[in-house]
Simulated scan of single mutants.
Amino acid sequence: MLPALDHIDAWIFDLDNTLYPATCDLFGLIDQRMTDYVARTAGLDREAAYQLQKKLFREHGTTLSGLMTLHEVDPHHFLEDVHAIEMDVLAEDRRLIESLAALPGRKLIFTNGDAPYARRVLERIGLSETFEAIHDIHACAYQPKPSAHSYASMIESFGVDPTRALFADDMARNLKPAKDHGITTLWIDNGSEQVGELGAGDWIDYRTGDLGAWLAAIVKD
Rank of each mutant, 00 (worst) to 15 (best):
G28T: 06
L64R: 06
L19S: 08
D6V: 01
R40L: 00
L198G: 06
L79T: 13
Y50D: 06
M171N: 04
I125K: 10
D81Y: 12
P116M: 13
W11A: 10
G201V: 12
H135R: 00
Y20D: 03
A39Q: 04
L215Y: 12
T18D: 07
G66F: 12
P162H: 06
D36F: 09
F131S: 13
A133C: 00
A49R: 01
A152F: 00
E123F: 01
R40I: 00
A217K: 08
R106F: 11
E129M: 03
I85L: 08
M171L: 07
L122H: 11
G196N: 10
I137W: 03
P3T: 15
R33L: 15
V195H: 03
H138M: 03
T185K: 07
D221K: 13
G28Q: 02
E59T: 15
S157N: 07
M68L: 02
D221G: 15
F13A: 08
T35S: 05
A148C: 04
G61T: 09
D170W: 10
A49P: 05
F27G: 02
F167P: 05
R33M: 06
I188A: 08
V89A: 15
T111S: 13
D93P: 11
D6K: 14
D202E: 15
A91C: 07
G159V: 04
V82P: 03
A216Q: 13
I85D: 05
S150Q: 07
P104D: 14
I183G: 13
D114S: 09
Y117S: 10
T208Q: 11
Y142C: 10
A178Y: 01
